[in-house]
Design a protein around this nucleic acid. Structure first.
Lengths: 155, 155
DNA sequence: ACGAATCGTTGAAAAAGTCAATTATTTGTG
DNA sequence: CACAAATAATTGACTTTTTCAACGATTCGT
């Protein structure tokens, strides 16, 4: 046995072996930062970012979300959703339709152009995701998604 | 069998059953947003946020990180680290020591007060984390951490 | 020894987030 | 029904965070 109980790792692993590196919040933040950067880079060629991609995805999926639902779902302030939708609507990718059931609310619907662009962007997004998950088996991928869902939707 | 192949869920689940909700990037972003908000709220009573907590954690752990290492590890711009360290140093929780091996670099070290505050803050952080993971078994907790590590440290 | 690279710092500019006020509409209650 | 309270979207002001280029000090490679 070594006479020293605990040896400090050297170089690259010094920080990775710290207490902080075991922290779930930290891992989540760092994983998210890397993933977000990769996604934004890939989506840029379609003139999208992760945010606008998310909005477009929901619109193209015929979810018909109101802006308020969007805000809650994406954890944004309603005023940020206004700007996001403005951008997509100006590009004619998406349309505001006043909800007939509640004329205060706007329901978001993708245009044909929006659906077409989303289909393309989705390809890029998928490719990025596969790249990031290169070290993860498909089973673990699904498992990870399940566990994250528990954190993302606590109720 | 129902004559309709696919039924749209109603109410709360409409968005949760969308394609986007299966997206790992999205789940990561939303889980991170909720976790970060909870952490910040809990750390506020110690005058910290997730960022400053992270820096303090590494300093208190005797990792002796340089500011550049901090920036890479926390995925921040070096200039943001300057501001972060300034704040902690003004409160005498942390000290800049010029690295004897490279006098361009500052190594971060926690003061006794910093270690004491960190110990307290760590309690709050742990409590929050447990709260968030109420629906997750300890085994799954560890599994989640492992999988996140793969995303957070791809190399 | 000397040019190129690196570390921390500064400051400016862009982007993102927060918040209160406003209008239009709906909901709940008498 | 009428009317007060609540809710959806929007706007504008304000703060915080992010991003970037430039700079002095120091180190590295040759």
């Amino acid at each position: 046995m070594s006479p020293i109980g605990k040896t400090r790792p050297t170089g690259r692993d010094r920080l990775r072996d710290s207490v902080l590196a075991g922290d779930l919040s930290f891992l989540l933040a760092r994983a998210n930062a890397l993933t977000l950067a990769a996604a934004n880079a890939a989506l840029a060629e379609h003139g999208l970012k992760a945010r606008s991609y998310s909005v477009l995805a929901l619109a193209a999926d015929d979810v018909r979300p109101t802006q308020r639902e969007l805000a809650e779902f994406l954890r944004l302030d309603p005023s940020q959703v206004v700007a996001l939708v403005d951008g997509l609507e100006k590009r004619q990718l998406v349309e505001r339709q006043t909800d007939p059931a509640d004329r205060r609310a706007n329901v978001l619907v993708a245009t044909d152009a929006g659906r077409a662009l989303f289909a393309q962007a989705q390809e890029s997004a998928r490719a990025v995701e596969l790249g990031l998950l290169a070290a993860v088996t498909p089973q673990d991928h699904e498992r990870l998604a399940q566990l994250l869902r528990l954190l993302a939707f606590p109720d």
